[in-house]
């Protein structure tokens, strides 16, 4: 049963039209959010699906010049918390993973089992003791406290599993050769392992960066309302009440979402690749 070339081309075009129609319906809420960020309140209510014409930057400017500086401070705090968490997590987890993969099978198995726990524990379960622990060591409601709990929690487990998985594919000879040359493990980790596991580092950096940036529960309860906000909790505080000022709402959300979305679009290849290699383990 062969179809003629004409019929096949028509089928292909039909498929494309259907695919675009479904995709567009699916991302309609994103279109609404994006276009509404550049529309006035009246334009949004008159036609939520309309294009932003005339175009306005008022929502964005109002969000950036709020008297409480919630958006600007929130963005700065988020950049700080995310960057420091990831910058500490990468060397810590890669060194730990290299160390683990050099252990005897039994010890390695035990350690990996213990770290697997962190992949599964719902954050709500450990939140309360963490808040109490931070109180006890004098880091309650502080950024160092938030960063420490990011570094020591489930994110570390994720990083360990990505690195240990990747290290399995690194040929033993490379490391043994460095060892015969008299290099210490610390030196081997720094000069041999880290360059080799760069794809794993990309995966770890991208995902942990995104998760820390988007995290809601930990900043909300660890920082508390008085110590400033990350952008994610800041939005919640600013827009928590049922306000109907859509222009303002979408303006703030545009600013909060633009960094992770652009980051995703730029690093898309590594992103999807990392997702698949991480998921198949």
């Amino acid at each position: 049963m062969r179809r003629s070339p004409g019929l096949r081309r028509l089928g292909r075009a039909g498929h494309l039209v259907i695919a675009w129609f479904i995709t567009f319906a699916f991302v309609l809420p994103i279109y609404i959010a994006l276009s509404s960020a550049f529309k006035s309140q009246e334009q949004i209510l008159a036609n939520p699906l309309g294009l932003p014409a005339p175009f306005t930057f008022d929502n964005i400017l109002t969000a950036l010049t709020r008297p409480d500086s919630l958006v600007v401070n929130g963005l700065l705090n988020s950049v700080l918390v995310t960057a420091l968490s990831v910058v500490i997590l990468i060397p810590l987890s890669s060194a730990l993973s290299f160390w683990i993969s050099e252990r005897r099978p039994l010890l390695k198995g035990i350690l990996l089992g213990v770290f697997a726990l962190g992949l599964m524990v719902p954050p709500q379960v450990v939140l309360l003791p963490i808040v109490q622990l931070l109180h006890a060591i004098g880091l309650a409601n502080s950024y160092p406290g938030l960063i420490l709990s990011n570094v020591g929690g489930g994110y570390l487990s994720f990083a360990v599993f990505v690195y240990v998985g990747f290290l399995r594919s690194v040929p033993r000879e490379v490391i043994e050769a460095a060892r015969v040359d008299g290099a210490s493990d610390l030196r081997i980790w720094w000069t041999v392992v880290l360059p080799l596991v760069r794809p794993a580092t990309a995966t770890v950096g991208i995902f942990l960066g995104l998760w820390v940036w988007n995290d809601f529960l930990n900043p909300l309860f660890i920082l508390g309302p008085l110590q400033g906000q990350t952008i994610t909790t800041g939005i919640y505080v600013a827009l928590g009440g049922y306000s109907a000022d859509y222009g303002q709402l979408f303006g703030i959300m545009f600013l909060a979402a633009i960094i992770p979305v652009v980051g995703y679009l730029v690093s898309q290849r590594e992103f999807i690749h990392g997702l698949m290699s991480g998921a198949s383990k």
Partner: peptide, 8 residues
């Protein structure tokens, strides 16, 4: 990890 995941 012990302090922020196992201990909690």
């Amino acid at each position: 990890y012990g302090a922020f995941l196992l201990y909690p």
